[in-house]
């Protein structure tokens, strides 16, 4: 719909039509979200079906209820339970992203640039491990973590997440490195760089958007993961937020307003992260380095 690009004027009818379509699409996408917001701020106990997602008897009670849950251990001062859980989630997700990227960057680079014995077989084996959903390995992972004494720990869960995050990141980054022209590294080496310097000063910066996306993706999948977290984490103060949220709608009592309030709160770190990542994600950073 670019009038100048097409060399013709867009008629009023067309313009209205296009906007109408977009409004409908946006409404369609946002409507459920607005319901969550409305639910989180509604004082009414039972969510009653209505057309417009406007909070009834607006209140902050649910938000407070979720955010200021406390852990009461006899003989100890009360601790801020939700704070612990949110921190757990963030630490575990950041660690997963970090482990994923740190392992995947050199691996993917090697796969993209070098030929070595067993390369194709290795890649195929790696791909094969990705055919099974992570849940399928929940039981073996449980046994392994138990054996390592890492059951119920954050590092144990990070290890579980890494089993999927690392291969995924490798494939993602391998593709990214392959799109970076070899000429760039060769130019750097002729300019006086060692192979490692060429990698660090030219390839890594050129791959930065892809690395940022990969890290973000690893973070998100860890942050959202439920089944493994539910399986591996025992004590309440070790829970990650998906497990916390799930407990509001357990089979005995479904506290939808609290669930909604919790969803909103846990979205905040993700939004902050996306905001920070944005400047790394500027598309086309490699454009213009080499012709074409």
């Amino acid at each position: 719909m670019s009038p100048s690009g097409q060399g013709r004027k867009v008629s009023l009818a067309e313009s209205i039509g296009a906007h109408l379509l977009l409004v409908v699409a946006v409404a369609f996408a946002l409507y459920p979200l607005l319901w969550v917001v409305s639910l989180a701020f509604s004082g009414a106990v039972e969510p009653t079906p209505r057309v417009l997602p406007v909070p009834l008897e607006p209140t902050l009670e649910h938000l407070r209820g979720v955010a200021f849950s406390t852990l009461e251990v006899p003989g100890e001062p009360d601790r801020w339970l939700f704070g612990l859980q949110l921190a757990n989630s963030i630490v575990i997700s950041l660690a997963t992203a970090l482990v994923g990227v740190v392992i995947a960057v050199p691996t993917a680079y090697a796969l993209a640039r070098f030929d070595f014995v067993g390369k194709e077989g290795g890649v195929r084996a790696l791909l094969a491990t990705q055919m099974f959903p992570a849940v399928a390995s929940a039981i073996p992972l449980y046994i392994i973590l138990d054996g390592l004494g890492l059951l119920g720990t954050r590092s144990g869960l990070v290890l579980c997440y890494a089993t999927t995050a690392v291969p995924f990141a490798i494939f993602q980054l391998r593709g990214a490195f392959e799109t970076i022209p070899r000429d760039l590294e060769e130019a750097a080496m002729v300019d006086g760089a060692t192979r490692f310097e060429a990698f660090r000063k030219v390839v890594l910066p050129a791959a930065r958007p892809a690395i940022a996306v990969t890290a973000l993706f690893a973070f998100m999948s860890a942050y959202n993961e439920f089944v493994l977290a539910h399986t591996m984490l025992g004590r309440e103060e070790m829970y990650t937020v998906p497990v916390v949220l799930q407990r509001y709608i357990s089979e005995f009592s479904a506290d939808w307003p609290k669930f909604a309030a919790g969803s909103l709160i846990v979205s905040i770190p993700v939004m902050i992260l996306f905001y920070i990542a944005q400047r790394h994600l500027i598309a086309g950073l490699t454009a213009g380095g080499v012709k074409g």
Partner: peptide, 18 residues
């Protein structure tokens, strides 16, 4: 390459994009 004291102009120019 770096020990040869040479400079090279590539067909693609190979400018560092960042």
């Amino acid at each position: 390459p770096r020990d040869r004291d040479i400079a090279m102009v590539f067909q693609s120019y190979a400018l560092y994009p960042h």
